[in-house]
Design a binder for these strands. Structure first.
Lengths: 100, 100
DNA sequence: CCTCAATGTTATGTTGAGATAACATAAGGC
DNA sequence: GCCTTATGTTATCTCAACATAACATTGAGG
């Protein structure tokens, strides 16, 4: 029960992919869900949720699991196709809509 | 109040980086937090939490925000340094500890 | 195969995430 | 500088995520 949550297909698919990758990484390392759970400070059941792509899991738990598997480095670096230019310092601190 | 949550430094840092990247992407697109929140089906406050790297946010919300900014594609594809080889099909379905 | 550990599944209680709302502050365009 | 509005901040309430626990199933190895 507890149908995971309503989400756009593309988004859900991406989470399932991430979950699959995490599971593969875990099995490659021959680690049980229990062990990874302990290392990440969570439970076996939550690991299962992550590996199944359940969107209702805190990102902090995801990150802890990635770290437990040695997959964390550079994870937060998403490259933006839109922004070849402009770093945070060069951007306005606020967005302003058209007729403001 | 509400100190975000206890986490390893590296993990926290990675989340802050992700949040920064999301903020930059939003500002580049000249979108207000309010607009992004609507598109992602959440609230302005939660967008703020994400951009500040708060680990206590559901990953589903993160994904929805990434999608709202056009940053979703390929996000779930993390490359595992350990596994040059072996796909999911070739792996045992369960991990088995040493003296099993 | 036969065993046992790893995983699936379900139930329950607690705690905090997140929605909602209201007010304060400050950035940006004019 | 003004004025508008994006964002910061705080408070309250609800509901579900997560931990815990107990039982069922199934795969990996000997």
């Amino acid at each position: 029960m507890a149908v995971p949550i309503k989400m756009p297909r593309a988004a859900r698919k991406e989470l399932v992919t991430l979950g699959d990758n995490i599971r593969v990484a875990r099995l490659r390392r021959k680690l049980t869900a229990e062990i990874v759970a302990q290392r990440a400070g969570t439970t076996r059941q939550t690991i299962a949720k992550i590996e199944s792509g359940n969107p209702a899991v805190k990102i902090g738990t995801y990150v802890a699991v990635l770290q437990a598997l040695g997959l964390l480095k550079g994870w937060g670096d998403l490259d933006d196709p839109v922004g070849e230019q402009m770093a945070l310092d060069d951007l306005p601190q606020r967005a302003r809509l058209k007729n403001g």
